[in-house]
């Protein structure tokens, strides 16, 4: 057994030595271009140009590849890459992209579903209100008119005329954020305390005084997985990309020791 092994190693060694003798290694000055590389370049070329390159063109594609490679190596030899911020950033970027690209684009439904379960709350549809309002413009004694109108309403008298509101009278399924955008913060703040189907107010907005009747409010609503699949997919892929990169960095970080001068002061 060990004899055979010795023989094997001996033959191997002599082949190696002969080879070394006949072809002294000068890897630094050898440019090896694989078939795959050439095919990839040709494919990119035809994608851009819309037809296959002819022989001359293939030659020039390879020539420029060779030139680039030579310049690149010479630059490395001169140490032009060291401490170049842009090269560092570019390489860091590249490795990040590589990590991002390793994700298959079509995630499995069951993965999406479990992702949805995990991040359910981000798909919550906030509480919304459908309401109508009577508006009393600021510059037309809105405050006192609104107060009087409220009294009239509570004593079942017919209401004196209100003013038109630029954004309309009836609002359907508006979240508090929507309401704040259209009327102002004070107005939306008092909204969640309102009871359904009775006139209440006056509530002050930026534009004047309002009497509000909430016709319907829909509680915060959790849409089912099926309703939000497209959004879940986008979010899932985005998180997967981020995670993959983060995992990769974390893994590498364990190999590194970071030293920051303890006496550093800005």
């Amino acid at each position: 057994m060990s004899k055979k092994l010795t023989l094997f190693l001996g033959i191997g060694l002599s082949i190696f030595l002969i080879d070394l003798f006949l072809n002294p290694p000068n890897e630094e000055k050898t440019i090896y271009i694989s078939n795959e590389e050439v095919i990839a370049l040709i494919n990119t070329w035809s994608l851009q140009v819309g037809r296959e390159p002819d022989n001359d063109e293939i030659r020039s594609i390879i020539d420029s590849l060779v030139e680039e490679e030579i310049l690149y190596r010479e630059a490395l030899r001169l140490g032009l890459d060291s401490e170049d911020r842009i090269i560092k950033r570019r390489l860091a970027q590249k490795i990040t992209f590589l990590k991002q690209e390793t994700i298959s684009t079509e995630p499995a439904i069951k993965d999406l579903e479990s992702f949805y379960q995990e991040t359910k709350e981000s798909y919550l549809i906030p509480k919304s209100f459908s309401f109508t309002h009577l508006y009393f413009a600021q510059n037309k004694e809105g405050k006192s008119r609104a107060a009087r109108a409220m009294q009239d309403l509570s004593s079942n008298k017919s209401i004196l005329s209100a003013d038109p509101f630029l954004l309309g009278k009836n609002f359907s399924s508006k979240s508090l954020l929507d309401i704040e955008r259209d009327f102002g913060k004070n107005f939306s703040a008092s909204f969640s305390d309102l009871s359904i189907d009775t006139w209440q107010g006056p509530i002050e907005s930026t534009y004047g005084s309002h009497l509000v009747k909430v016709l319907d409010s829909r509680e915060e609503y959790q849409p089912s997985f099926e309703e939000v699949i497209p959004q879940v997919k986008v979010d899932f892929l985005m998180r997967q990309r981020d995670e993959q990169v983060k995992e990769f960095i974390d893994e590498l970080k364990t190999d590194y020791q970071v030293i920051i001068s303890p006496s550093f002061k800005q």
Partner: peptide, 8 residues
């Protein structure tokens, strides 16, 4: 009527 609630 500028005061019509359905002005728009």
């Amino acid at each position: 009527d500028l005061n019509d609630e359905n002005l728009v």
